[in-house]
């Protein structure tokens, strides 16, 4: 961990009006992004490898009044520290792991996806998550689990493997949605955080992680039904209003199942342990994806 950067983020938080008492608390230090809580503010140093022009455009989009009921609104303009963009946000309470607000999650994504094409001016860039599965699978070592994951990955459409340009976007999407992306700032309802991948895309990708975990047997069917049901009832555009939701969810859910399986293998390797039951369920899902495409 970078103590110098932590001190700089704390100073930025204090300058932005965070209460002077209270120790800074490290909230996240993952893959080069650092988030520190300073009193009632959260200060984020974005990843150094993010394109500053694109990230700046996503941060400007987050500050747009049209997104006020959907996203936590950043405070002021992003700063620059050692070549990285730093943004300041109101701190919000996280989702309790014991009691995820699935209905609220579905409704807030439906609200985001309902924004018309001209709601944001200038429009945000294309969403930033397109190459993530390919990058994660690319980091896999050898071994039987990795082989299963690579075989499933090979069945995905070429644009997900970097062999063709992605299809044009139809909505503004979060781009990296999971339950850790919901917070509740004081006096407000649930809001989305982390706009590093926000942009134009197919809204089905925001449902992809939950869909993948349901399909792998890891997310219980009743929780998936609460999430999808609330999303549909709120008019969410990622799936048909009625009937089979997998016509649009299928490819994003397959991709996320593969990506989560790859992440799990890398975590387990890092921690020097075998895959647990749930991680194994994701690798087994990869095998079923391959069989559904190319036969046994």
């Amino acid at each position: 961990m970078n103590d110098g950067l932590l001190a700089e983020l704390t100073a930025i938080g204090r300058a932005a009006g965070a209460a002077p008492d209270g120790e800074p608390v490290l909230l996240a230090d993952r893959r080069g992004a650092l988030v520190v809580r300073v009193g009632d503010l959260a200060v984020k140093a974005h990843r150094a490898d993010k394109d500053p022009g694109e990230l700046g455009a996503r941060l400007r989009a987050a500050a747009h009044p049209a997104l006020r009921d959907v996203l936590v609104v950043p405070l002021g303009e992003p700063a620059r520290v050692a070549g990285r963009l730093v943004s300041v946000w109101p701190y919000g309470a996280a989702v309790s792991p014991d009691d995820p607000p699935w209905e609220e999650a579905g409704r807030i994504l439906a609200r985001l996806h309902a924004l018309p094409a001209d709601a944001l001016d200038p429009p945000p860039p294309y969403w930033g998550g397109v190459g993530k599965a390919a990058r994660t699978v690319g980091r896999l070592p050898g071994g039987p689990a990795a082989t299963e994951i690579r075989r499933a990955f090979a069945t995905l459409p070429g644009w997900l493997r970097g062999e063709a340009p992605p299809p044009p976007g139809t909505a503004i999407i979060h781009g990296d949605w999971h339950l850790g992306q919901l917070v509740r700032p004081p006096g407000q309802g649930w809001r989305l955080i982390d706009v590093d991948d926000l942009g134009w895309g197919d809204p089905a990708w925001d449902l992809a992680r939950a869909a993948a975990l349901f399909s792998a047997g890891v997310l219980p069917p009743d929780e998936w039904a609460r999430f999808l049901g609330a999303y549909r009832a709120a008019g969410g555009r990622a799936v048909p209003g009625s009937g089979d939701p997998w016509t649009t969810l299928d490819i994003p859910a397959r991709t996320l199942a593969i990506q989560i399986a790859a992440t799990s293998v890398l975590y387990a390797l890092d921690e020097g342990r075998p895959l647990d039951e749930f991680e194994t369920a994701l690798v087994d899902t990869c095998s079923r994806i391959t069989r559904s495409e190319v036969g046994p």
Partner: peptide
């Protein structure tokens, strides 16, 4: 109603509690 799953979905649920 039972939520439909894609053809490649799991037949088996893995039970857990998040916390």
């Amino acid at each position: 109603p039972a939520a439909p799953a894609p053809g490649w979905g799991a037949q088996q649920q893995h039970h857990h509690h998040y916390g």
